[in-house]
């Protein structure tokens, strides 16, 4: 199954539209994609996400921490219900990824 994502720019930085399916197989490509955007301010568009797995959640958390360490902006825009519920089943929220986790 093809996983499409788009990349645009906004005032907050490069907008990266997360794929619809962020499962086990999507984890490595997601990590690579994020690595390619390293150093830039980025906005993750989560509006299209329909499935979110543990592996990709870990990648997103690591990315948020990395961006914070490198003093670059990292945000999640328009999280879909699936994205939010995918985090919730693991005991997380979008805000927790960006703030709480980074605050540790």
């Amino acid at each position: 199954m093809a996983r499409k994502s788009t990349k645009t720019t906004s005032a907050d930085g490069t907008v990266y539209a997360l794929p619809q399916v962020l499962d086990l197989k999507a984890a490595t490509p997601l990590a690579e994609k994020l690595m390619s955007l390293r150093g830039q301010n980025i906005v993750l568009d989560a509006s299209k996400v329909e499935r979110l797995g543990t592996q990709c959640v870990q990648i997103l958390i690591a990315a948020a921490a990395t961006w914070k360490d490198e003093m670059a902006a990292f945000s999640i825009a328009e999280p879909s219900d699936s994205f939010t519920s995918g985090l919730q089943v693991l005991g997380l929220t979008p805000q927790a990824i960006l703030e709480k986790e980074l605050a540790q």
């Binding site: 086990l24 984890a27 490595t28 990590a31 994020l34 690595m35 390293r38 543990t54 592996q55 990709c56 870990q58 990648i59 958390i61 690591a62 990315a63 921490a65 990395t66 360490d69 986790e101 540790q104």
Partner: peptide, 12 residues
């Protein structure tokens, strides 16, 4: 939390 480049997605 490890940097995103150091993460192995297969590990928990």
């Amino acid at each position: 939390v490890a940097p995103v480049g150091d993460i192995d997605p297969d590990y928990l």
